[in-house]
């Protein structure tokens, strides 16, 4: 069990003042989840992907106020914690106009929530494609197309991946809860770290590590490992990744 959650149990639960604001947590697979991989953003091996569903299971989520700021350089986060009761199982294809799916809105003490820990964990009901199995942490269903071929696929992983992330990075700085105000944070899965991108150089380090779609091009159900792919981010911000 990641040590961040020990901190969560010990340091959190500070009483909220009556003037607490709210913090909404979102999950996103970005436009690659909602719109798929389309030219020029094909997979690194030239496949177009259309997803019918991307089921992700998140748990052990804690938002943190850290000072000095946590820099995503270890599994340990120290600070004021706001633990979130999970798990959450969401379809990242069924997202809003900003490609996000709301997980939960919490009362939160004012301050800057500049770190976020969370885990991809196997889900339970609704995630077991085969009755009686243990479920999956990530399932991607869809259709792949290339050169007249059309392949239906289901890719699934039962891996547990712990994430200790720093501050959300994106077009706007996030996580500032003010008295009576609203703020949000986002768990972001970068799907191009799994499939690569044809619009980036072949020797781009992301493409060197990404699997592409070729290993799954026979279609049907494929299991894959999340280890080494590093899908999890907070916007464009990095996370320290570890196994339990």
């Amino acid at each position: 069990m990641i040590r961040t959650h020990i901190y969560a149990a010990c340091l959190a639960l500070a009483p909220l003042s009556l003037s607490a604001g709210s913090l909404t947590l979102f999950a996103s697979g970005e436009d690659l989840a909602t719109e798929g991989f389309n030219a020029p953003k094909l997979t690194k091996d030239g496949w177009a992907l259309e997803f019918t569903r991307i089921l992700a299971s998140f748990d052990q989520i804690t938002a943190w106020q850290t000072d000095p700021p946590f820099m995503a350089d270890s599994a340990d986060i120290a600070g004021r914690a706001l633990p979130v009761t999970g798990p959450f199982m969401v379809d990242l294809v069924k997202a809003d106009d900003d490609d996000r799916v709301a997980l939960v809105t919490l009362d939160a003490a004012p301050g800057h929530y500049n770190a976020l820990s969370w885990a991809l964990v196997p889900g339970d009901d609704g995630f077991s494609l085969v009755p009686g199995d243990d479920g999956f942490s990530l399932v991607l269903d869809g259709i792949a197309r290339k050169d007249g071929q059309e392949v239906a696929f289901t890719l699934r992983s039962a891996d547990i991946v712990m994430h200790a992330c720093g501050e959300y990075l994106g077009d706007m700085r996030k996580g500032f809860v003010t008295e009576g105000g609203e703020a949000d944070l986002e768990i972001t899965l970068h799907l191009d770290h799994l499939f690569g991108r044809a619009d980036k150089p072949e020797d781009d380090e992301m493409n060197l590590d990404a699997r592409g779609f070729a290993p799954f091009a026979t279609g049907g159900v494929h299991d894959f490992f999340l280890g080494g792919l590093h899908l999890g981010h907070v916007g464009e911000g990095h996370c320290h990744v570890s196994a339990p």
Binding site: M71, A72, D73, S74, G166, H193, E205, M206, L208, D209, G228, H230, H238, H240, V241
Partner: peptide, 11 residues
């Protein structure tokens, strides 16, 4: 500044 984390490029 962050300390340098060993590992793959994404880390």
């Amino acid at each position: 500044a962050p300390t340098v984390a060993a590992g793959s490029w994404v880390q």
